[in-house]
Amino acid sequence: MNEDQNSGYRRLNPKARVSMYIGNIIAAVIWLAIAYIAWGFIDGMSESFRDLLGIGLLVLTAAIIVYLAVGPLVYYARYRYIITDDAIDIRKGIVILRHIVVPIERVHQVEVVRGPINNLFGLADLQVTTAGGQAEIEYLDNDVADSIADDLNRIVNSIVRGRNEDA
């Protein structure tokens, strides 16, 4: 259902969009509160400052709201991931398009993270840590995240076991 038949890449569960929107609504409310407080300061300034900073604040707020409103649609539409026997491959991005490849052989640690909003929708993020940094597959179904984590842990453990036997 969530798999691209041609490339084998998997897409996110549509619930991810809702989770993103709720997160963005909270972010928008926080930003509007900050902007409201900032406007209080700006309103007390001299006319030339007030006009310019007011317009600047308005433009910035509009840009952030548009980004938060459109972002989840674009992010969801572009998000693809595939996990093969030896690599984790993620394609994502709203403005900057990213293609990330992590060899499973380099993975040190696998972690499933469930934030409060994701938890409401039965979603989780999967974080993989290598010696060079972290990569993340976001908004996975809980069971999918657990299953991938188990698979990755099994592969990583078998690699370590193999090395210990060699040693």
């Binding site: 991005g93 900057i96 398009l97 990213r98 293609h99 990330i100 490849v101 992590v102 060899p103 380099r106 290598t130 010696a131 060079g132 940094g133 990569a135």
Partner: peptide
Amino acid sequence: VQIAELYA
């Protein structure tokens, strides 16, 4: 190489 990322 631990992670290779292309971005544009």
